[in-house]
Design a protein around this nucleic acid. Structure first.
Lengths: 188, 188
DNA sequence: TTTAAAAATTAAGATATCTTAAGAAATTGA
DNA sequence: TCAATTTCTTAAGATATCTTAATTTTTAAA
């Protein structure tokens, strides 16, 4: 796990093995079984999770009781409920493992300590946050520009291996389509 | 302008006046007239803009020729086409001043120099990027949860002063509603 | 003050997508 | 291997939102 983290961090800046060790010590490994929740609505999201292996989904439940998937997190991504983590207010979101998932988690206090002791980490998280923002903007853009059918085709074409790991009704949710309508779209 | 920047930066970390000066020297003030473009589709977005005064919109034009406003930028916000700025590829977006707008702009090279010489800036931009991400996530959330009518009412209620600075058809675009339908919604 | 341009409204017809409800298929666990 | 659960499909009727096109109102420019 440490080596996976190391090669991840070295994408963004050069870290000595002492620095890696120091950061690693702030992290706690944890494994979640399939369907287990990393976070539930109402909880304050105290951690950022670095996914070593597995797959999670971040979603909310609207007033009609429907789940809306906001994004998926996979290997080598940091994931959290940003708003809750930063503001320390109850999360509106759920985070759930869709496969058995191993993460390295860090809480806010430790993260602040890590920033303080290893300032280069600010850079890493500045860049990963930017990347996340780009990903979200791309998603938004293809949402506004495409019909349901086009979104689905695009998703399947661009992320075939990813699509295979996720049940169709969750893809529908992610693409903001009802599962019934998606089924119809697939037919003809 | 420098003092405005200074008080902005000091929200996120403590900067000496030498550091402020050093950063300020990397920045170029510029004023755009109403309707002038800060960025056009196809251009590579070479700058981040810190808005001193004024109002801009970031938008794309879809294949039907419709403008889709992604967000507005106002005083004390950094704005850019993230994807283009970071990847150095042609922008899919336009950025246009809706009022006479004064900005401090910084290009990528200078920003990297600034990060290098004043590492605390990594923190500032890490945090501002996080804030931006939260803002986008909130917008997305209220999009998936609300009807057109609800989105409009919410917008007007939460940002009345902001709404007054923007023509209605642009609010419609931002909320992903046609101007005609918004007009209908307002009626009854 | 008048004219031109920009923005907002109206209304009728079209359509993409949802809702509901039921049944079929596939996957998982015992 | 069988039962239980989860996922996917079908279809009919409902509706939110869009399209088009014309008209009115407001704002800006000369």
């Amino acid at each position: 796990m440490k080596s996976q983290l190391q090669s991840y961090l070295n994408r963004y800046a050069t870290f000595s093995s002492e620095e890696i060790d120091a950061f690693y010590n702030y992290l706690t490994p944890k494994t979640f079984q399939k369907k287990e929740f990393l976070l539930k609505e109402g909880d304050i999201c105290k951690n950022k999770f670095f996914i070593i292996e597995g797959l999670v989904r971040l979603f909310n439940i609207d007033n009609k009781g429907h789940e809306n998937i906001i994004h998926f997190g996979i290997e080598n991504w940091w994931t959290t409920s940003f708003e809750s983590f930063i503001t320390e207010k109850p999360s509106l979101l759920y985070m759930q493992a869709l496969e058995k998932t191993t993460v390295l988690s860090i809480n806010k206090e430790n993260l602040e300590k890590a920033y303080y002791n290893i300032p280069k980490l600010e850079r890493v998280f500045r860049i990963t946050t930017e990347n996340m923002l780009i990903a979200i903007e791309r998603k938004n853009e293809f949402y506004t520009k495409m019909s349901s059918k086009e979104r689905y085709d695009f998703f399947i074409e661009k992320l075939p291996s990813f699509a295979q790991r996720i049940p169709q009704y969750m893809i529908a949710s992610y693409l903001d389509i009802t599962p019934e309508y998606l089924s119809e779209l697939r037919k003809g």
